[in-house]
Nucleic acid binder design. Sequence first.
DNA 1: GCGTTACCGTAACGTACGTTACGAGATAGG
DNA 2: CCTATCTCGTAACGTACGTTACGGTAACGC
Lengths: 202, 202
Amino acid sequence: MASRRDRVDQRQRLSAATWSVLAERGLPGLTLRAVAERAGCTTGMVLHTFADKQALLVHARELLHQRTGQRADALQAAAETPGTALRAVLFQAAAPTTERQEEARVWVGFLAASLADPVLAELHRGYNRRFVDRVRGLVAAVRPDWPAADCSSTATGLVALVEGLNTLTAVDPATYSGAAQRAALDAALARLGPAAAGHPSG
Amino acid sequence: MASRRDRVDQRQRLSAATWSVLAERGLPGLTLRAVAERAGCTTGMVLHTFADKQALLVHARELLHQRTGQRADALQAAAETPGTALRAVLFQAAAPTTERQEEARVWVGFLAASLADPVLAELHRGYNRRFVDRVRGLVAAVRPDWPAADCSSTATGLVALVEGLNTLTAVDPATYSGAAQRAALDAALARLGPAAAGHPSG
DNA sequence: GCGTTACCGTAACGTACGTTACGAGATAGG
DNA sequence: CCTATCTCGTAACGTACGTTACGGTAACGC
């Protein structure tokens, strides 16, 4: 007699609710009661699925990483050249659409929570370094003639640009529109040469 | 009979304490009691100087803007060419030193608080747009031959890069060291031509 | 020197939080 | 069909928060 309800599904629904609340009310509004209400259950069920609030946070953080990572994997696999792959991965990591802006707000919330929570901070560092590694590999594929150090610094710069666009879009979507983000990314990618140049009207 | 104690000084000391707590404990740890303890007084005195917690937050946010803005003003005035001014302003806005990393952490805290507090969000947007305007003016001074649209997109891109470096440094100073930040900025500034190129060993 | 006024520490209030304990209902085995 | 076991909603607990009310104390005008 293992489980009569689907535990995995409930964990996902609860972390999705965590995400939703975090995007809508921000970090101070993220309470167990708010999550329970959003998920349509009670705090008792929440704490029966997760040991405590931090476990819920950690799972929601992993869910966020899963979504962005899988999206990046798909784009990278579908791209025909390393140049288009790099461009697609970076652009999806920024927040060009309303849906991505919600993700950006969640990301900012987790970032701020990481400042006080060592567990979340360690998760954040790991995920971010993985993202840097992915970008570095793509940069090296686009410019195999570059030394490794240049690929590294270029990758960290591109990641910083993308995450900067994320954070700024989260609080000021008007100034940092999708077009502005595209322009900033295209300008940064132009340094890699024509292999990573943007589409004229794509 | 106006005031027997220096109100302005107390406001500054309290907002400095707010800053200190925010950098050390993060947004969840920012309570009136923590601020009072850090300032060496009680919550009664805090709420006698500021109407409520939000007023204290707003004042601390303004203080952060004052510090960065005055530092940018000084660097801009001391620079001999628009190119060196742009470089200096951007580099100080990133977080190359331990002290600036504390500011970066505070900035992230206010950013996350802005997601749920419209007043703080409006302040954040205003300050950030002022920063973009400053950078845009410097870009236009470095490249007067560029059309205004190019100066704008370049400015937003540079600001996004700087703020991205800020946020990433706040939680992972090891990966985003001062050298890495300098390299990323130099690479971005190289697009502006030799007028904004970095010092060889500065 | 005295009354008045502003200042600020103390203590409490109401609220909301994370967490825990317990009981009702549902489900599977025998 | 009965019992044991798991699931989850209910209700409460202790704590910490923002905020408020009040009293003592020190500084000013006269």
